[in-house]
Computed example of a mutant assay.
Amino acid sequence: MKKVTGIGGILFKSKDPNAMNEWYKTHLGLETTPYGTSFEWRESEDPNKKGLTQWAPFSETTKYFEPSEKDFMINYRVDNLEALVEELKKENVTILDAIETYDYGKFIHILDLEGNKIQLWEPID
């Protein structure tokens, strides 16, 4: 089973997310919104399928990255989240919550070996 298929997003803490968005917009040309920006790309195996990678600054006081003490969280794209979660449970990986489904995909959070919170995302293409 192929597990991770790519990077879905880079999420990080910032003293002033709005100023950070504006700086990247002004100096590097990112088309930012209050949620950061999405980079659109095409899958190499099927160029008709689009993918997204999210870049998003969060407030430095966010609790969203807890229980990790790091200032960042990586979102990984996966193919079959339910099957992967079952496999991770058997491997005693710490799973922080239940799978949540939105109109743009399914999500769950886990911890890696050093306690970094990781977001797994099965996109709905």
Rank of each mutant, 00 (worst) to 15 (best):
P17D: 03
R42N: 15
E22W: 05
K15E: 12
L28V: 14
K3H: 12
G51W: 04
P34K: 05
L30I: 04
P17M: 02
D46P: 00
E31D: 08
N18W: 00
K13N: 01
D16M: 02
S14K: 09
G6T: 05
I7Q: 09
G36S: 04
G8L: 01
Y24W: 08
P47I: 04
P17F: 01
W41P: 05
D16T: 06
T5E: 09
P34T: 02
T5W: 09
I10A: 11
P17R: 04
D16C: 04
K15L: 07
E22N: 12
M20Q: 15
S14Q: 07
S44Q: 14
S14H: 07
G29C: 06
T33N: 07
T37M: 06
D46Y: 03
W41I: 00
A19H: 07
V4E: 04
K3R: 15
G51V: 02
V4C: 07
N18V: 00
R42Q: 15
N48C: 00
G8W: 03
F12I: 09
P34L: 00
T32G: 11
F39T: 08
K25L: 06
S44H: 11
D46F: 03
F39C: 12
H27T: 06
E22D: 14
K13T: 03
N18P: 04
K13G: 00
E45H: 08
P17N: 05
K15N: 14
H27F: 06
W41V: 02
K13D: 00
M20D: 13
P34V: 00
W23E: 00
T32H: 09
G9K: 06
N18I: 01
L30Y: 05
E43G: 04
R42E: 11
N21E: 02
H27P: 11
Y24R: 06
A19K: 15
H27N: 15
R42G: 07
I7F: 11
W41M: 07
G9L: 10
